[in-house]
Design a protein around this nucleic acid. Structure first.
Lengths: 139, 139
DNA sequence: TGGTAAAATTTGCGTGCTCAACTAATCTAG
DNA sequence: CTAGATTAGTTGAGCACGCAAATTTTACCA
């Protein structure tokens, strides 16, 4: 059950940490890059990253400060502020993404066959609170 | 991949938190209770709980303060201080253990068959950093 | 035997996150 | 059209943990 802790650190150290990114930073960028207009409401990130609203606020605080993200007003609903991916953010993601996901894949493929990865993903996805797609690999 | 986060909180809330215990607190007690003479070196807990030495120090700080654990000198090696389960600790574990593990089991069995749990456990166990037995269920 | 390396542990500092409480905007009944 | 409920988000306090550095004790080897 503590797979995450170890895998996670191993993953971060490789390519993310050198750029001052966290796994959640990375995944936030990833989700933004795939969203329409490359922007998402905070609440959407809460769901996708499985954080609390306050966690997301702080996460975006850091990303915005690093210029990878921007806060944009949402006309039509003054409650929401978009988290908008900046060109810098997109570029960073592009740079980091390849080696990160490669690393991720190899981490699984070293010990599991493709079918087994599939199986594992399916089983985990059935657990409560783990939607299919809450896993980077599945993205 | 973020299964842990959710399952973990759900688990804690049920029976552990009301007693002021954390999952790691619980697992520490569990490991101690199964160890010879109901005591373990800090380093052993580091391995079993997948924490850093400093994490274990702080964990035991709390447990000792709550009287569930005691620090005992180790004659023969002055570097180590045993973490010794107290009667209180054993009792607490007994009280909490049944409902906690029941809850744990049901959490898996609600969405997975017994075979599938087995399968999941096997697959996870092959991942680097996850020995078989680092999962409460396997204990 | 002495000296350096390794093992077990603690301490200070930083960080990522949660929880609870709060504000502000929007929706929904009566 | 207004009163309460809901939704989106922020803020302060606190916690569990990691990392790096320091300390003490033990082991190993020239």
């Amino acid at each position: 059950m503590r797979a995450q802790t170890v895998l996670r650190r191993e993953l971060e150290a490789e390519v993310l940490t050198p750029r001052g990114l966290t796994i959640n930073d990375f995944e936030a960028l990833l989700h933004l890059s795939r969203a329409e207009d490359q922007r998402l409401r905070r609440i959407d990130l809460v769901d996708r990253l499985m954080l609390t609203p306050s966690g997301v606020t702080r996460l975006l605080e850091g990303l915005a400060e690093a210029g990878l993200t921007e806060n944009r007003q949402c006309e039509g609903d003054a409650r929401v502020t978009w988290a908008q991916l900046t060109p810098d953010g997109a570029e960073t993601l592009a740079c980091v993404g390849v080696s990160h996901t490669a690393r991720l894949r190899s981490l699984f493929r070293d010990s599991l066959s493709e079918d087994e990865v599939e199986q594992l993903s399916e089983l985990l996805g059935r657990l409560p609170g783990v939607g299919p797609g809450s896993c980077t690999a599945a993205c």
